[in-house]
């Protein structure tokens, strides 16, 4: 138990990821307001991105741009660009999702006049 706790405390990044993920997931499933659910979903996605960045962070590394005179190239000094590019792509995906979901919420609000999920289900009958 103590070892587990120590292992957790040694990795505050991952602990933060777990807290963010579970917290936002609980927001997603427990609130009735559609916009709040959406906020929960958005933080779930962001927490996954946070995990990607936490895995790829490297202290003391610089941007992976090869300057003239950098010979021999020492890969240790550079940050790995791939996870960051993945994060960037995933952010774009996330923004697109946000756009579609906001459009759907707007359409629902126009149709049913409320953002409360239970209320919408009631008015659908």
């Amino acid at each position: 138990m103590l070892e587990l706790l120590e292992a957790w405390l040694l990795r505050p990044n991952f602990l933060a990821f777990v807290v963010l993920f579970l917290w936002s997931f609980s927001i997603m499933v427990t609130t009735r307001n559609l916009v709040k659910q959406l906020i929960g979903l958005y933080i779930v996605q962001t927490s996954v991105l946070f995990f990607l960045i936490a895995v790829s962070a490297k202290s003391g590394a610089t941007v992976p741009v090869l300057l003239p005179g950098a010979d021999p190239v020492r890969a240790v000094e550079y940050a790995n660009p791939l996870p960051h590019v993945l994060t960037l792509t995933a952010v774009v995906v996330q923004v697109a999702t946000l756009g579609v979901s906001l459009a759907l919420i707007t359409a629902m609000y126009r149709t049913y006049g409320t953002l409360d999920e239970e209320e919408i289900l009631k008015r659908m009958e």
């Binding site: 997603m28 559609l34 659910q37 959406l38 979903l41 779930v44 996605q45 999702t97 579609v100 979901s101 759907l104 919420i105 359409a107 629902m108 149709t111 919408i120 289900l121 659908m124």
Partner: peptide
């Protein structure tokens, strides 16, 4: 009615 289904699909699908 499909809007509500679409939103649920979106929440679960994005999850």
């Amino acid at each position: 009615r499909a809007l509500v289904s679409a939103f649920r699909y979106l929440m679960l699908g994005t999850m």
